[in-house]
Design a protein around this nucleic acid. Structure first.
Lengths: 234, 234
DNA sequence: TGTAAATTATATGTATGACATAATGCACAA
DNA sequence: TTGTGCATTATGTCATACATATAATTTACA
């Protein structure tokens, strides 16, 4: 297979179906026409006629674009351009047990990077009510005892609130969509999580840092908080 | 519209098409059967028969799953489960000028968070060759002069290399896929970028920090490097 | 004359049957 | 063992017909 690459004269065989081609053509069409949200595109039969294929092919292509959230169709009205909800698209396609292990690991790393990196947004945008709410969430965390049982739902509640604070919808949806992946990773033993782990910075301490509104400190705190996850990967 | 919610006895009208339902059924089928990558599913006619709909509907549903990268079909062989390439899916659907402004801003923030947060992976995984390559990239950056013209391609080259160093394919693809969005944001004036901007930490300085292999310092350096972008958003 | 109800037109949604195409496996031959 | 050809089979494409929902228009009525 690798050897084939050296035959530069051999052009790649066009293995794509009509639907693939039409899909590309349609995307090009959208871009070249600089269509905006709400603009409508020609109806199926017209497109079929224009591109010289059957309505079936057009429909299958449009169906893909619809799946990607690029268009929306209504009876009688036709097809219109839509602003895609990029997270909604991923939502269905991410079925943890179907993703291979390296992808799962990648996604988990992505989460770690995000949570450390979003410190500035959390610190800047957290209202006093948010902080109170966080205190409420962590109030049951036992004093200074850092060795508590790892509770995934508690984890999600706390970190989920942080995502919420960022006021970044895409980020928030992103988190929601990756939740099943985390749950899967934790439960599948892929990460070799110990039942009791040392927490370098507790949730409670994190909230206290947040209260000082020091982004730098909060970022460091979060990094230390996630130390258990990092050292397992690095 | 909002008022309808108070009528709890009124069940939501099932506005979904057959294709929607069949799609859900198929997903449930995959999950309940715990199908793994490579497993094949019944052929179209069997599915049509089983679910009591026409082959057309089955095909449209399968087409969606194929768009999401969950399945792959081959003539004669049939349909098999696939590990979806989640970034490839997004690739086509992200057409910057179709995304609305708030989503664009969200994505840009996501980038900032990622680049600050991935410091640990960069520091830990960068080989000496990587660092040399980075030095090569920044070698033309004028000495201590921090006021250089903002060059998007140069930016992409440098930061792209960092993503590459993380050795995280998903992250890397993610970056590639968001590139058009960045370019669009920079060129559209959405961010009000100044022609000349003060860099708190230059690329060259970043590489020097990286050479010390101090993750903490590198993270701080990156945060300061991106200061121009942050303060425009926060 | 203005508004509500009924009608019509139309574009998408679904169904069906036919044939094209390509991959698979088998039989047979060199 | 290797190669060729043929039959089989599941997806890919096409054509047509009809169902369904809804925008647009007309009609009916106060």
């Amino acid at each position: 297979m690798e050897k084939l690459r050296s035959f530069s004269t051999l052009s790649a065989i066009d293995n794509s179906s009509m639907v693939d081609k039409v899909e590309m053509s349609l995307l090009d069409f959208f871009i070249s026409k600089e269509l905006n949200v709400g603009d409508s595109i020609p109806k199926e039969l017209e497109l079929a006629d224009l591109m010289g294929v059957s309505r079936t092919v057009i429909r299958e292509s449009l169906n893909r674009l619809r799946t990607m959230g690029l268009i929306e169709t209504k009876k009688k009205r036709g097809t219109v351009i839509k602003s895609p909800d990029i997270t909604l698209i991923l939502q269905k396609s991410i079925i943890p047990h179907i993703l291979d292990h390296s992808t799962l690991r990648d996604i988990f790393e992505l989460r770690l990077a995000l949570e450390v990196g979003m410190a500035d947004f959390v610190v800047t945008r957290a209202t006093n009510e948010d902080i109170l709410e966080l205190f409420e969430i962590v109030k049951d965390e036992e004093g200074q005892s850092a060795d508590i049982l790892f509770d995934i739902d508690y984890e999600i509640k706390f970190h989920g609130k942080l995502y919420e604070i960022t006021a970044n919808d895409t980020l928030r949806e992103f988190q929601k969509l990756l939740l099943p992946v985390y749950k899967y990773i934790y439960s599948s033993g892929l990460l070799n999580l110990p039942t009791a782990q040392r927490k370098f910075t507790s949730h409670k301490q994190l909230v206290e840092i947040l209260q000082t509104r020091d982004a730098e400190k909060f970022r460091m705190g979060m990094r230390h908080h996630l130390e258990n996850h990092f050292y397992r990967i690095l």
